[in-house]
Design a protein around this nucleic acid. Structure first.
Lengths: 167, 167
DNA sequence: CCTGAAGACTTCAAAGCTAAAGTTCGGACC
DNA sequence: GGTCCGAACTTTAGCTTTGAAGTCTTCAGG
């Protein structure tokens, strides 16, 4: 979608002109991360759209599958994992129940609690989305050798550890 | 914000159980990219909040500074660069004009066109934000040697080129 | 029991976004 | 030089998210 966007190199050069204390190496990494993610989200959005769902709904499906059998979670936990407010989760689940992707039931043992469960249709959507996503991801990484992929994964994991500490 | 979130390793193991055709190396990279970006956006959001602006407004400031002297762009170009609709840009500029971060003037030569310009206050906000951001980014990368940073930057740039081709 | 406090979800109002329709101006064509 | 088309922005309506207030349930104490 961004068309007149400057190239990464142009962007870094411009920042250096405007802000002297800039480490171009750091800026390259950070800007590339940001751009990559935006592009990837657009690509995922196009894919999920072909399946008739949104990225937002896909994330709920992912969380439920991640929870493992029997694919059930409370709205509050879902909200925490996706970084949403409980209110947003309520609405999102409303839509997904209407579409038959998940079920919403009261917990029998504690009637304050609600349990969101994946339907077969929801699980199938996740599988379909996974199929598309892995194809895209393999495509994205096609220029990197196995060794380079290993290095990249390791470096990113280290960054992630650093940032997931100070949560 | 995500609290009960599984670790990256747990997540990959769970995906492998549920989806046999999964390349763990690819998944590690992709998932780490996604998580990193979410954490970073939260961190940036906290920083810009201390300056009294939002991430959304910061992005407009960045685009204007990137344009270079005299820091002027049309709403349409801004919208393209930020990946927004023109309508969203109109509203966002409304707010930023009210806050004194940018100006909005009619182009004298073509009165359909509008020109958004950075104010001194807006430029100063960008400088302040840049100060905070570079500190955070340096902190994020503190565990990586100069050589590792070079490798990471190069690998990310190659991924970006791949994904920016098929726009 | 009955009450009060805390927890889990929902409801409500307001902010910000998108898509589509509307406005206004510039330029080309006849 | 009048008319029509297209470009650039704004307006409108509807949707998603947030933050705050509200509802219902559980549990601990009296």
């Amino acid at each position: 979608m961004p068309e007149n966007e400057p190239t990464l190199d142009e962007q870094i050069a411009a920042y250096q002109r405007e802000f002297a204390d800039l480490d171009p190496q750091v800026e390259q990494i950070v800007s590339a991360l940001g751009r990559l993610n935006r592009r990837m989200n657009v690509a995922y959005g196009r894919q999920t759209a072909t399946l008739g769902i949104s990225n937002a709904e896909w994330e709920v499906l992912k969380a439920l599958v991640l929870a493992g059998q029997p694919y059930r979670m409370g709205p509050g936990d879902l909200a925490k994992q996706l970084g949403l407010t409980p209110a947003a989760m309520t609405h999102r689940i409303d839509r997904m129940v209407a579409e038959g992707l998940v079920t919403r039931d009261r917990d029998e043992t504690n009637r304050v609690r609600v349990i969101v469960g994946l339907t077969d249709a929801g699980r199938q959507k996740w599988l379909d989305a996974m199929e598309l996503a892995t194809t895209f991801e393999e495509d994205l990484l096609q220029d990197l050798s196995a060794k380079e992929r290993g290095v990249l994964g390791e470096l990113l994991t280290r960054l992630l550890q650093r940032v997931e500490l100070g949560g």
